[in-house]
Design a protein around this nucleic acid. Structure first.
Length: 678
RNA sequence: GGGGCUGUAGCUCAGUUGGUUAGAGCUGGGGACUCAUAAUCCCUAGGUCGCGGGUUCAAGUCCUGCCAGCCCUACCA
């Protein structure tokens, strides 16, 4: 049966370049789409840049250009990266399009007509200098619970959460101004009214992975669903709400509608009808997303679609995050690797293959271990698969392929038989299983050549027919593997097509032999990974900021952003400073605090028997073992503070915005624990 | 505190509806070959299936308690 399938990946935000984390999703989706196309289904893969919101507005302002200019250059960079990784969209749009604006209007009217929109005034912090309301993440201040300074608007390193309005001495990170409270009317979608529908949708019909359905039932559907705030007052970069002038649709309102708007654009290009895709029960809709945006795609979005009478998602496919060597990606460790940086040193096929070997249908994080990466690519992909072609290449160029398929001991037939199992694994996104099966076939193919000894036949004029037979078998087995790998490795499929003069276009080609043709000159298809290249890639990723900046005009051209983020404090006297007793201390021990998200528990020595216990919010940035033994600078006379996990008797000094970007102050050699910092 | 997921050889994982001596690949050790990108092939090492109970004729596989790791939450979405 020929299926009609529309597939999307999450829309990348136009606020930064594509990195290896993003690519987990796009590669996962692209493999699925290529698989469906290979199986002969009508499948289109759509994506777009997500362009609206405060972050874009602020960034454009900081860069001194219009939002439109910013998003246009981002879109270009995103599309270039995707293309180089072989991510093949049928159309790539933007949420800042007229089609999207119109469709937002359609959804809005439906929600209004269904009586789901309500309005109420909410109190929010407002930056009087930047003239804008502040989302939580744009406010920092002193934690009302523990007194730590410079904490985020909604939670503190001490583990407490609060409203930004509770912060002591709050500051806007945009201007440094003290925010003021202002009232503004916001528009809300009353999600609770859709509870019955949503519960049913989550529970029935196999739209979600079971752990996701459980999560939704446990966290949201077990309680009254909160109204969803879908408007933002001016200034805001987005679409103004027609019947509420001065208010804009929140970026998360228009972003998913971008899926449909992008379909609309594709339809216009291809003379198709939007209704065939989005108002047609025979059409499947598949969204691929990361676990962080589960909630938008599994509650709001189905609610919106249902209300506006569009197709509901057939399935939302949710994946976990990327970790590198078992740790979260970190800029300081050089594991925040931009697509562009990767491509300077490595072949995109490596990453596609590696991800495929690791991806399953579960929502778990995917770890890119560098050693494992090298091993899988070199041993499995190059050593087993590509080698099969490489080792008979020269012979085959002379012999060509036999007219009739020789006896291969049932290898090809066995491979053909495995095809449906491999296909089923691709279908349910268990790529790891698909690759495993394919490698089993590759494992059987090499011994065949080994035992046939074609190199001996080559020397014996009597055995030229046998040599041709061996080449025919080896090449057919290689071709079969390549077809199975085609969704993952389109480049390899392309090379194989060219070599054998037969395009790979359909899964079913794996069931039939290629016979009686000449074989072209064999060209090396894939080089082995060099570990040094990976190291260079990591090294280069270490010091780059999130996006490449303009070229440096002088040797030192540090960004002014940190100072903007946290303006200088008011002037103090030398006496004021003298009150703060900074001391050199040695880290005696460091350990994780089981229940704490951000804290490490440190024992610091000030020399002799003088020790202090300190809880430091540096868990995301440092491993305990990195710290033991090193010297730090601590605030030694800070009033001890009772925390949930115990008493904290001081503070370790560090710079940086927090999270994984925390940098502990070091001290030059020679300093001794207990010495005061003047 | 609540919820979810995971825990099988050094590493990455498979283990179908519970059923004979728990599997694979890689790494390690030994050997072979030379067509091939120091690729390949053969042999070999090796695990109280996180721990403790329970159900059963029979449990890695079901139930339960505990432990560990990861993730999500903590009255924000």
């Amino acid at each position: 049966m020929n299926r009609k399938i529309l597939v999307t990946s999450a829309l990348p935000y136009a606020n930064g370049p594509i990195h290896l984390g993003h690519l987990v999703e796009y590669i996962q989706t692209d493999i699925w789409v290529r698989y469906q196309k290979l199986r002969g289904h009508q499948c289109i893969y759509l994506c777009a840049d997500d362009t609206h919101g405060t972050a874009i507005m602020i960034r454009a302002k900081n860069e001194g250009r219009s939002e439109e200019e910013l998003i246009a250059s981002m879109s270009e960079s995103h599309q270039r990266d995707f293309e180089r990784f072989g991510i093949e969209f049928d159309h790539y749009g933007s949420t800042n399009s007229k089609e999207n604006k119109e469709l937002c209007g359609v959804f809005w009217t439906s929600l209004r007509n269904a009586g789901l929109i309500t309005e109420r005034s909410i109190e929010q912090l407002y930056d009087p200098e930047a003239n804008t309301f502040l989302a939580d993440r744009f406010v920092r201040g002193t934690c009302p619970k523990c007194g730590l300074t410079d904490q985020a608007g909604d939670n503190c390193n001490c583990g407490h959460t609060y409203n930004p309005t509770d912060l002591i001495d709050p500051k806007s990170t945009l201007s440094g101004a003290t925010p003021v409270l202002r009232n503004a009317v916001h528009l809300f979608v009353e999600l609770e009214k859709l509870r019955e529908f949503l519960t049913k949708w989550v529970e029935e019909g196999n739209h979600l992975q079971t752990e996701v359905a459980n999560y939704l039932k446990g966290h949201f559907l077990s309680d009254e669903l909160r109204d969803w705030d879908v408007s933002r007052p001016a200034p805001y970069f987005g679409f103004e709400i027609p019947d509420a002038p001065g208010n804009y649709w929140y970026v998360w309102f228009d972003a998913p509608i971008g899926y449909i708007a992008t379909t609309q654009q594709w339809c216009q290009k291809n003379d198709e009808s939007l209704a065939d895709w989005w108002r047609n029960d025979a059409c499947e809709i598949h969204h691929f997303i990361g676990k962080d945006i589960t909630y938008f795609h599994t509650l709001f979005w189905p609610g919106m679609l249902q209300t506006a009478g569009f197709n509901l998602p057939t399935r939302v496919h949710i994946h976990g995050f990327l970790t590198i060597n078992g740790e979260k990606m970190s800029k300081s460790k050089g594991t925040f690797i931009a697509a562009d940086t990767y491509l300077k040193y490595n072949n995109p096929s490596y990453l596609r293959y590696f991800y495929a070997t690791k991806l399953t249908q579960r929502v778990e994080d995917l770890d890119l271990g560098l050693d494992e990466f090298v091993r899988k690519v070199n041993t499995d992909l190059v050593g087993k698969v590509v080698n099969l072609a490489s080792r008979v290449g020269k012979f085959a160029q002379q012999t060509g392929l036999a007219e009739h398929y020789p006896d291969d001991g049932g290898l090809f037939a066995k491979g053909a038989e495995a095809g449906e199992e491999i296909a089923a694994a691709y279908e349910c996104k268990d790529y790891s299983k698909a690759i495993r099966r394919i490698m089993e076939l590759a494992d059987a193919a090499n011994p065949y050549v080994e035992h046939a000894k074609p190199w001996e036949m080559k020397k014996d004029p009597e055995k030229q027919d046998d040599l041709q037979s061996v080449c025919t078998v080896a090449i057919n087995l290689f071709r079969q593997l390549t077809i199975y790998l085609a969704p993952v490795l389109p480049d390899l499929a392309q090379q194989c097509s060219q070599w054998l003069g037969e395009p790979i276009q359909s899964w079913d080609q794996s069931k039939s032999h290629l016979l009686g043709t000449k074989v072209g000159k064999f060209n090396r298809m894939l080089d082995r990974v060099q570990i040094e290249d990976l190291e260079k890639m990591i090294e280069e990723s270490k010091n780059t900021t999130e996006e490449p900046q303009e070229p440096a005009s002088s040797l030192f051209c540090d960004s002014d952003q940190p100072l903007k983020d946290e303006p200088l404090a008011e002037e103090i006297s030398i006496e004021d400073f003298a009150k703060v007793d900074l001391r050199v201390a040695r880290v005696l021990s460091a350990e994780h605090v089981p229940e704490a998200n951000k804290l490490l528990k440190l024992q610091l020595s000030l020399g002799g028997d003088e020790t202090r216990q300190v809880f430091a919010g540096i868990k995301a940035a440092y491993e305990p073992e990195q710290l033991v033994g090193r010297l730090v600078v601590m605030v030694a006379n800070l009033k001890p503070r009772k925390m949930r996990f115990g008493l904290s008797e001081g503070m370790v000094t560090a710079a940086g915005p927090g999270g994984a970007d925390v940098f502990i102050l070091g001290i030059d050699d020679g300093a001794q624990p207990g010495q005061r910092v003047h």
